[in-house]
Design a protein around this nucleic acid. Structure first.
Lengths: 217, 217
DNA sequence: CAGCATGCTAAACAAGCGTTCAGCACTTGT
DNA sequence: ACAAGTGCTGAACGCTTGTTTAGCATGCTG
């Protein structure tokens, strides 16, 4: 057995365990995945996981926090001035999915982990959703101030509707891939999904179909 | 111990086990809930569950099928002629959530079980989603034929968008309840949710706010 | 009334789980 | 060079899991 620990950088054995745990937990969930499976995937013994993280639950919490940090970094680009660009039918139309797609590779386990996080009854999940909701409200506010969208009769609910619609793509990704024959979160899939979504946001279900550059007389 | 089996109706011990399993599985998931927990909730011994259903997995499949049957009966009212009413901004606006709310009590475990079904990688979940997608496509077709909505540039994707938006309410119910301070699937909550949703479908994000009965000059 | 199936329980079983423990290999500070 | 500390393993422990088995009480049928 080789003990390799040449440079004191970040990719320690600890980080490898964290990454493999993230991958497996995203794919199968914390109840299904065993400590032994994670240990095998990381090429270590089960005991080492407890040594590093205290317990299986400790590891899960550390992965949660790690995912939260990564998302927070990505969400940073949506706050402040540029926040109004979110959901803007006229602008580049940066939805959450598009932001994630721009930052993560197509096969990243993070969107799947996000899904589990949002649906799990954990503080991390609640925190993340609250953060996204605040972001959605701020974006709607910005759009309203800029005259690009109406806040509606019930802005709190309208922001929730917009967020829910955006997140549905993550939550139902697998089912949508099955019926559509393509992954709506892939680069190709989004070129079909986003226009339909934005067309509805722009003019509702009755709006005239806009070919690449089209006006209605 | 009493052996009560007076009338040969449906509410057999078997049905009690099925109902308790449904309740517990919806609330905590199949991986978390144990056979002993279900047995205790139903007031029987763990062995009896295996005796009736073969295995824990067998019980889960029977509950899946039972839920599928109940939903199928409810979905029946949406097919055919009346299918066009689904998602119709002008009509009574019967979304999936409203249909379910009309048929089920507020504390029914079925919406929560539906969520798990749709997100689980099971044939039952895939089947149900496919069924709902076909329904959504048919509804959009009907609306288009009636001139009440445009099919969009990509009808297959548009139907998926509408379905995903509808289902998001079920999937994110708990999180939405937290940030909004009310359950959007309750009778009261839907009076706030539906108008915002329909307002967007009717005219997009820029549409003028419609008070109960309002025209735009 | 004998006989057999049915509904059901209590106890036990093997397997798998998360976790603990004793100890080896190696690095670091003195 | 020696002691202390870290990273890590392999085996074991106690517990819980789904499932099996033996057997009892009841109801149906000839």
């Amino acid at each position: 057995m080789l003990y390799m620990r040449s440079i004191p950088d970040d990719r320690t054995t600890r980080a490898v365990i964290r990454d493999e745990a993230l991958r497996l937990l995203a794919a199968h969930g914390p109840e299904t995945v065993t400590v032994r499976q994670i240990a095998a995937a990381a090429g270590v013994s089960p005991g080492l996981i407890v040594h590093h993280f205290g317990s299986k639950e400790g590891l899960r919490q550390e992965v949660d926090q790690y995912v939260l940090d990564v998302f927070e970094a990505m969400l940073g680009e949506l706050t402040g001035e540029s926040g109004a660009k979110l959901l803007d039918p006229a602008a580049g139309a940066s939805s959450l999915s598009e932001v994630f797609a721009r930052h993560l590779p197509d096969d990243s386990p993070l969107p799947t982990y996000l899904r589990r996080l949002l649906l799990s009854e954990t503080d991390a999940g609640r925190l993340l959703f609250r953060r996204l909701y605040d972001l959605s409200r701020a974006a709607l506010d910005g759009l309203a101030t800029a005259g690009l969208a109406a806040p509606g009769n019930d802005p709190a609910v309208r922001a929730a509707v917009l967020l829910a619609n955006d997140l549905a793509l993550f939550l139902l990704r697998d089912r949508l891939t099955e019926v559509l024959g393509m992954d709506p979160l892939s680069a190709e899939g989004m070129t079909r999904w986003a226009p339909e979504m934005l067309s509805i946001y722009a003019g509702g279900l009755n709006a005239a179909p806009p070919p690449p550059q089209g006006d209605t007389p």
